[in-house]
Design a protein around this nucleic acid. Structure first.
Lengths: 133, 133
DNA sequence: CGGAATAACTTGCGTAGGCAACTAGTTGAT
DNA sequence: ATCAACTAGTTGCCTACGCAAGTTATTCCG
């Protein structure tokens, strides 16, 4: 438990310094990126992140203010939005990638065997699934 | 990574509701408790927690204001303090214990096999050690 | 079709906690 | 003994984010 916080904090600092992006923001950009052109709803984004609705509203506001994402009203539900990366956002994400992977390696993955990595992945997936349900 | 945050948050809510104690505070109390009568230095406490010096100062202030811990000037180094639980702090910790273990089980441990638990423990210990060094 | 129940955000408010700069005590070298 | 380097905590400032209470928009009944 403590270990995971230590890792996250170390990565956050690395990413912030080298790419000017907080870990949480990087994560959001990565998820939004996967949604591609058509965009993603904040609610769906929240499912993939660790934020609550309110936290997400603010994070999205920040990313939008930075010009990294754009939003448009969802055509099928006027309450919601569709978020997608801007060109600038894609660039930021691309440029952050090397540092991101380096940092993951240094603080986390490089210390694990293949077996351990796999065990962690399946275990945490199961745990997250249990709590969502 | 995400999973661990989800678990921590869930436990934090449980503990806050049922025992009136944040997870981070519970963790600090537990470490201080282990130090026993003689107390522990804030710096040593920081090593076992996820907080920085400043965060720790504030957390300690809070716990002290709540009457859960007491501090005295360290006899061998006038810059520092020795922190120890008060009777009230010990009681709070004892009363929180059942909920704490229940919550760990529900959100985390119950979803893992023995083998997985062991793998996680050793892996994270190694990781934390690497980053401290 | 009208009104309750629900869903998708948003906002006001409060707190935790990081960083960098500061104070004060300790140690070590000359 | 003195002065520089270090270490222990503290504090000012700022940001992220949770919770609870809104505000629209949508859906589900009858």
């Amino acid at each position: 438990m403590v270990g995971s916080v230590v890792v996250a904090r170390a990565m956050d600092r690395d990413l912030q310094r080298q790419a000017g992006l907080a870990l949480a923001e990087h994560h959001l950009l990565a998820i939004i990126n996967e949604a591609g052109e058509q965009g993603i709803r904040p609610t769906d984004l929240a499912l993939g992140s660790t934020l609550t609705k309110s936290g997400l509203t603010r994070a999205v506001d920040r990313l939008e203010a930075l010009g990294l994402i754009g939003s448009r009203v969802c055509p099928t539900d006027a309450r919601g939005q569709l978020l997608a990366l801007t060109a600038k956002g894609r660039q930021k994400l691309r440029r952050a990638a090397p540092e991101f992977f380096r940092s993951v390696g240094q603080h986390f993955a490089d210390h694990l065997t293949e077996r351990e990595t796999e065990t962690l992945a399946t275990a945490f997936e199961r745990i997250a699934a249990a709590d969502r349900g």
